[in-house]
Structure formats: C-alpha cells, structure tokens
C-alpha cells in the first residue's frame, strides 16, 4: 500500500490523498472516493478515512480521500457556485482525475454524516457510480436536532450519576457533609434526566402516530431520497448504510424510509449494518475496526466480480 499527496482539479486547488495497492491495480475495479464528513478534513472522524483507505488499498482498491472546495486544505472556489452544485462539480473533478491518471471507469462513493449525503447525491447524478456507502447519516430539521440533544443530555447525566457520582466516595462525602450543590443535583435529575426523557418519549410517540409523511417538514426531500434509492436499485447500484447503534439518525431513517429499506434489503439492493458500542464519530478503536470490517466485506463483492470478469 502506498500513499501520495495530490493537488488536482481544474485549478489544482483540491487536496487529496491517493492510497493505492502495492501491486498493479485492476482497472476494472471501481475506485473508492471518500467525501468530507461535515467540516472534518480528509482524515475523517477519529481518522477512520485513513484506516478505511489503507484497508481497501490492501484489497486492491484505489482510494481517494479529498477535501471539497473550502473544506480542509482545499481552497474555496472563486466562482461562487452554491454548495449543492459545487459538491457534484468537485466530485466530477475527482472522478476525471482518477480516470485520466489511473484509467478508472467506475467509482464507489462513500461518506460519513454530511459526507454520506454528498456520496448519495453524486451517485444519483453520475452513472459511473457502482455503489454507495452511507455512514451515520444524520441531520434533519430542528425538532430532530433538539430530540437528539435531549436524548444525549439525559443519557450523559444518567451515566454521570449512575456510573460516576454514585460510585465516588468523595462525592458521597460531599453530599452528606453539606458541601454538595443540592440545587444543581436536583436540576440535573429533574430537568436534564427526567424532563428530557419525557420530552424525547413524547417526540417519538408523536412521530409514530403521525407517520412518516408528517414526521418531517421536508417531505419533498424525503420523496427525492426515496426516488433516488429506487433509481440506484434499478441501475444496479447497491447501497450500504452503516449506523452506530442507538443513533437518532438511524431512528429517523427507519421512520422516514423504513419500508424502502426493508423492500430494497429483501431485493439485495441495499444492506443496513448497525455497529454496537459506537458513537457518531467512532471514538472507540473497536468500533473503528468493526466499521473497517463492514466496508471491507461490502467491497469484497466488487473484487470477486472483477475476478470473474477477468477470467473470461
């Protein structure tokens, strides 16, 4: 496996790292292109893009992880193109670069969080995309963000008191000698744990009753996503969706496009994988390893397909 730092694109303003196998790559294999997760530069959250790229290169894939214009080390564009147009254009420049310098004809687009949306949109627009990997797609309107924040706050204080304070002799000593902040403890237990639990439960119940059409203000966007999933399935472009266990993004996805997930999974056009003991950014090393194994296993199918093609 080797790594090369590259400046590419029309004005050579896009910065990327090209990871390649040590042996001559099979040009019929798709190259994997990784898109920035939010504003995190090309190493990915907790450096997982670096690890994924290296693992895939060892399997024979060429991998490009790069910074979109204005993110990481890539300069901002001077043409004022809106983001929804500049991302596909940057992706196009990445594909062209790989086609011109490495003879690549097909691509797997992948991304974490906001990067998964880029990967999906680019796949819908470009027939050369052979597969899409969506990792921890989050987002949604403010009500979902508030729901997510409340869940996490409630969980944090539950753990703080349940695993931290309750097992600390120092905290107990303070509690019984009048040196604890009783007001703060009461606020955390009542407001941050209990009240947040009530609010999150009512949000879930409300959404379950309302159904998917009323659970979001973005009906048109959901429609576009559903159409996109079907279009990719028809084009034989399988989708891998990976979520950290218990994430709000997974709940939202299951509520809004659950029936499509089920239908396309049954038709083997889509696979949903859930990683236990993982947070959104894969902080724990074991969760990073699990993610790498899932992605490796998904990409292995292309390796096998390529081996069959080359035997003819």
């Amino acid at each position: 496996m080797s790594e090369r730092a590259v400046l590419f694109g029309r004005n050579k303003t896009l910065v990327g790292i090209l990871t390649e196998p040590d042996f001559p790559p099979d040009p019929s294999l798709p190259a994997v292109v990784l898109f920035n997760g939010g504003l995190i530069h090309r190493v990915g959250p907790s450096r997982v893009y670096v690890k994924l790229a290296r693992r895939l290169a060892q399997m024979g894939f060429i991998v490009l992880r790069f910074d979109l214009s204005g993110i990481g080390d890539s300069s901002a564009r001077l043409d004022n193109l809106p983001f929804e147009q500049s991302v596909p254009d940057d992706a196009q420049q990445a594909f062209d670069y790989l086609a011109r310098t490495r003879g690549i004809k097909r691509f797997i687009t992948a991304g974490h969080c906001a990067g998964s949306l880029h990967a999906f949109r680019v796949a819908m627009q470009d027939n050369r995309v052979a597969s899409v990997i969506l990792i921890n797609s989050e987002g949604g309107e403010d009500s979902w963000k508030a729901y997510d924040r409340r869940r996490k706050t409630s969980r944090y204080y539950e753990n703080y008191y349940g695993k931290g304070a309750l097992t600390s002799s120092d905290k107990w000593r303070k509690f019984f000698t009048g040196r604890a902040s009783y007001r703060s403890i009461a606020r955390n237990v009542v407001q941050n744990i209990l009240w947040n639990k009530v609010l999150t439960l009512s949000f879930r119940v409300k959404n379950a009753v309302a159904g998917r059409h009323r659970a979001t203000q973005y009906g048109a966007q959901i429609k576009a996503i559903v159409e996109g999933m079907h279009a990719l399935a028809q084009r034989n472009t399988p989708i891998l969706i990976v979520y950290s266990q218990g994430s709000s993004g997974l709940q939202r996805t299951q509520l809004l496009v659950g029936s499509e997930l089920h239908e396309l999974s049954a038709a083997e056009k889509l696979k949903l994988e859930i990683i236990p003991q993982a947070d959104h950014t894969f902080t724990l090393l074991a969760s990073q390893e699990k993610l790498a194994q899932i992605v490796e296993s998904w990409c292995r199918a292309f390796n096998q397909e390529s081996a069959v093609m080359s035997s003819y």
Partner: peptide, 24 residues
C-alpha cells in the same frame, strides 16, 4: 464523550488511570 454519545456504555473499555485508548 462516552457518557454523552454511547447508547450502551456498559461494555465500553474502562477508563482508569492507565487507559489503553483515549479519544481514538
């Protein structure tokens, strides 16, 4: 971070004075 983000911290690696990993 684990307390805030992880839905199940029961089996997460212990964070003691000599942890084997921190923040990745």
């Amino acid at each position: 971070k684990l307390w805030y983000f992880l839905s199940d911290v029961q089996n997460a690696p212990e964070t003691n004075d000599r942890p084997s990993e921190l923040l990745g």
